[in-house]
Amino acid sequence: MFPYEGMIAETVQLQGDGGDWVSAYAARPLGTTGPLPGVVVVHHMPGWDEWSREVVRKFAQHGYNAVCPNLFHRFGVGSADDVAAVARSQGGASDAQVMGDIDGAVRWLKSLPASNGKAGIIGFCSGGRQVYLAACSVPSLDAAVDCWGGGVIATPEQLNEKRPVAPIDLTERMTMPLLGIFGNDDRSPTPEQVDRTEAELQRLGKTYEFHRYDGAGHGFFATDRPGYRPEQAVDAWGKVFAWYERWLAD
């Protein structure tokens, strides 16, 4: 007899910021009653795209309930790329709204019958920046993974109505362990910016682990882009799963 393996992946509706119903893509392992930890996947500026959905299914493959809320839900109805085009032209969703939607995704994960009551978060690029913010402002989360989030450090000119605070300035409020994955050839964040973020985490006594990879730049997990670095990506995915095993297991 061979072991059963399966998952269900589907779009769902969950209550996000302000009680709004927003669309989300969710994947859950089948053949188990759990209890399982959950992971919120934060998409990047190109939107609720194929890459984000692949990541959601990857977590289900590894035994997690996973969900990626559509942070651009309120920008209109259409294909993910058309909606993302409108969102990008308007500067994306506000930090406050994104935090509300992430909190809603956490509540959705923890309400599942197979939940173990814990949930982590992972985000890439602009999603990495939002993960850093969530680690400081969404206490319902239990562990965070920031993959090359740029803009954690921001100059006053880079702040605006939608992004009023530099995430690094909220570090004191961080309530969960943070894993950081970075490429040393990245220009946003630069290695120097990663140094400054790490110094702030150390100064405030936060629980964190940073892994920096030589020979890798920005977005080195993306298998369909020239920047993909298989050796570094495989190692870093191992670090991600080890992190969640450590902080989200029963």
């Binding site: 500026m45 190109p46 939107g47 085009a85 990008r88 920005h218 977005g219 882009r225 020239p226």
Partner: peptide, 19 residues
Amino acid sequence: NVYYDHPFHAPLDHALIVD
């Protein structure tokens, strides 16, 4: 709308995008 950023479809890390 013109920007240089991650594309949705092109197999590039960054692209000049015009909508």
